[in-house]
Simulated scan of single mutants.
Amino acid sequence: MHHARVIPCLLIHGNGLVKTKKFKDPVYIGDPVNTVKIFSDKEADEIIVLDIDSSKNGSEINYQLIEEMAGEAFMPMAYGGGVRTLSQIKQLLRLGIEKIVINTAAVNSINIIREAADIFGSQAVVGAIDIKKNLFGCYKLCVKSASVDVKRSIDDHVDDLVAAGAGEIFINNVDRDGMMVGYDLKPILSITSKVNVPIVISGGAGSVDDLSYAIREGKVTGVVAGSMFVFHGRHRAVLINYPTDIVI
C-alpha cells in the first residue's frame, strides 16, 4: 500500500483566506492563521500557501502574515506568490517556510530556479505551472493568476524547470479550480511519465475517491485540494476538514 501526500492549499487575498473558482471571484472563508492551526491539529501532511495578490500584481510578500502562519504550522509549509528574488527566498526560509513555489518568475527567467537550487538546495525549490485549455481544448501555460498566457509548450517548460534544479513540480489546473469535479489526468500523465522529480497536482478534487484516483492513475506523489478541505455539503458551508488516511 502506498501513502501519498495529501496537501491543503490556502489562498491569501489581503489578510484573509479566500477560495476561488477558475482563479476568479475570491470568496472570503476565514482567518488564515487559525486555519493553518486547524490543519496542523488535524496532522495534514503538508500545506501550501499562495498569495494571489502578490502573484498577479507583483506586490511585496506579506512577511508578517506568513511568519504568523508558519508559527502555527507543525508540518512542512510551502509558500508561493510574488517570489522574484533570492533575497525574498532567503527571508521566507528564515521565517520557517520549507519550500518556495516559483511560477511567473521562472517563466520570465529560468535562472531564478537554477540560482535558488544552487544556494538553498533543490528540496526547497518547487517549480509551479498553471495550465488551462485554449479554444481548441489543448492545454497551455499561463501566469499571473492565469491572467496572462504564455507562448511556450508545457513539456518544454517542465523540462527546463527540472534541468534547472527544481526539486518538485506543482501543476495547477485553472479550469478545474474550485469546481470539485475531479482531476483531469491527461496533461499530467505526459509529465509524470518522463520526469524523475515528485509531481503534485491541484484543481478539481471533490472527494477522497478523486484523491485516490489521481495518486493511483496519475502516478503523482502528492494531491492538492482547496474547496474539498474548507467546504461542506451542497450549500458549501465553511468547515475545515482533512481525510485521516488515503491508502492506495
Score class of each variant (00 low, 15 high):
3 H>W: 07
4 A>W: 07
7 I>Q: 08
11 L>R: 08
11 L>K: 09
14 G>H: 05
19 K>R: 14
19 K>W: 01
27 V>F: 09
27 V>H: 10
35 T>C: 10
39 F>V: 05
47 I>G: 06
48 I>V: 15
53 D>C: 02
55 S>H: 08
56 K>P: 02
57 N>W: 10
58 G>D: 03
59 S>H: 12
62 N>T: 09
69 M>D: 04
74 F>W: 00
81 G>M: 02
83 V>D: 04
84 R>F: 01
92 L>C: 05
95 L>T: 11
96 G>F: 01
96 G>Q: 00
106 A>D: 00
108 N>Y: 12
109 S>V: 04
109 S>C: 09
121 G>T: 09
122 S>M: 01
124 A>W: 06
125 V>A: 10
126 V>T: 11
131 I>Q: 06
133 K>G: 08
134 N>Y: 04
134 N>T: 00
135 L>Q: 12
141 L>R: 06
144 K>F: 11
144 K>P: 03
148 V>Q: 13
152 R>I: 04
153 S>V: 05
157 H>F: 15
163 A>H: 00
173 N>K: 10
178 G>C: 12
180 M>C: 06
182 G>C: 02
183 Y>C: 09
188 I>M: 11
194 K>E: 09
201 I>Y: 05
202 S>Y: 11
202 S>I: 03
207 S>M: 02
208 V>I: 15
208 V>S: 14
211 L>A: 08
216 R>F: 12
216 R>K: 15
221 T>S: 14
225 A>D: 09
229 F>W: 11
236 R>W: 06
238 V>A: 04
238 V>Y: 06
242 Y>N: 07
243 P>V: 04
248 I>Q: 13
